[in-house]
Amino acid sequence: MTGRQTMAEATVTVRGLAKTFILHLQGGIRLPVLQGVDLDVQAGECVALNGPSGVGKSTLLRCLYGNYRADAGHITLRDEGIVVDMATAEPRHILAVRRRSLGYVSQFLRVVPRVPAIDVVAEPLRALGVSEEAARERARALLQRLHIPERLWALPPATFSGGEQQRINIARGFAHSFPIMLLDEPTAALDADNQGAVIDLIRDARERGTAMVGIFHDPAVRQALATRLFDMKPP
């Protein structure tokens, strides 16, 4: 449901979220992953999802993004002052929320072949109507900040190293200053230097008031970024 409401307390509010996978090709096996999940995230907070592998951290993140369909519960957030429930919103509303208010950095870069790195990074801004020049300017600044050598900017990232691709992905994710960011292992493939640059970038966003939910397996990264842990247990 979408409607005009007064400002909610938290930037992201999750209530009673449930998610079960039904594998029809495996005889209809049911895999309950999330049940009764409640979570509030405030502006300027970075909540680290915590728990063993398989507990549903990525599933929760994907539900928040509208990538996985919630079976029950509500995921409410504000998009330009209007409260949207990601668990029930229509596709075009989810896409509008993703364009304007909700960013996501996945573990792997997925892009159109042939598009140069600089345009991959600039694209989220172009989609918001920012001029090509201004969007590229912002992209250049981010690529520089994340130590992507200038000779690579005009090349499509398909042939880049894993660490370079991941930094392109992060630059793309942070090109627009989303009020809410979801981060799935943003530093997994990075060496120490580049990890530091990425941590700085994410921390700056947090300090500007971005509400974040993330998965950080590396304890040092989690220490540097998380303001709070959200413990998850198998249902």
């Binding site: 996978f21 039904i22 029809h24 994907r62 990538n67 996985y68 596709p91 989810i94 896409l95």
Partner: peptide
């Protein structure tokens, strides 16, 4: 449904 939702979390057999 939303393209990435249908492809990443398909519901129908």
């Amino acid at each position: 449904g939303l393209t990435d939702q249908v492809l990443d979390d398909p519901q129908h057999p």
